[in-house]
Amino acid sequence: MSMRKISFGKAINEALHQEMERDDSVFIIGEDVAKMGGDFGVTRGIWQKWPDRAKDTALSESAIIGLASGAAVCGLRPVAELMFADFIGVAFDQLVNNAAKLRYMFNGEVSCPMVVRAPTGSGIRTAYHHSQSVEPWFMNVPGLVIVAPSTPYEAKGLLIASIRNEDPVIFLEHKSFYSIKGDVPEESYEVELFKAEVKREGRDVTIVATMSMVALAEKAAEKLAEEGISVEIIDPRTLFPLDKDTINRSVAKTGRLVIAQEGPKVMGFGAEIAAMVVEDVFEYLKAPVKRVTTMDVPIPFSPVLEDYVVPTDVDITEACKAVVEF
């Protein structure tokens, strides 16, 4: 494969172009996705090539999701964009009560192969209506798939796999990633859904980290290595349904677990991982599980306040030390 460095946003754009080219049933729908190419520029160039298959909508998030799921059950593969993941709140019913349930309710008579792309997470100083981490809102909705890449390579391969998947996918794009560059093959490829990746192998403590926390975990791991603590990092990549085995295996090996996530601690992604590990591999645990999370508050605007409530690599480092020294 011919590798070159492109940005996270460009990698997603390339995935969309290649899938539009490959499969006539793929189309994009959302606010400002056609002529303008999306608020973050991720859908650029698609409308110019396929004007009929790039639909700028009204500001109608429920209709965007409803239209996408209606088109999906009738044989198309819509890729909807919600300008910010927070806006899913407006379309919650269509996603949770309808799209997620169609296959099950009709006992497999229909598929609803749609992707909802949604910029998520904090870091661009836009406060609580544009900065939330929405994944736990959907983690107890069987029927939905939640995908969360942390590199440009994964973004492209996971989006292609999501478009080809037969069930509704919420594809979370951490908005601080869009301009970050990484190695991405030019050709089309899939990164396997429902499969966690061991980003770094280690012996003493497992960090399960998602999206923006992966890079911070890597930074923490470098620091801890200097102090003789060997860290294993796992990025679930598909947050739901979860690759439990990879996490359980790692915890059984290291005996210690730190979960690093954005979003409030209460009932967050980490809560589920902690419960799972206690249920499945309790006998291997050498220390209590620790969660490193955003504080339990709405994301405030002031850069000083935002930075204060969102976890840092230092928080992860300290959590790892605490469980090792327990």
Partner: peptide, 11 residues
């Protein structure tokens, strides 16, 4: 309603 509109869009 939007689901039916999606079916119509697909047509």
């Amino acid at each position: 309603l939007p689901i039916a509109a999606g079916a119509a869009l697909s047509a």
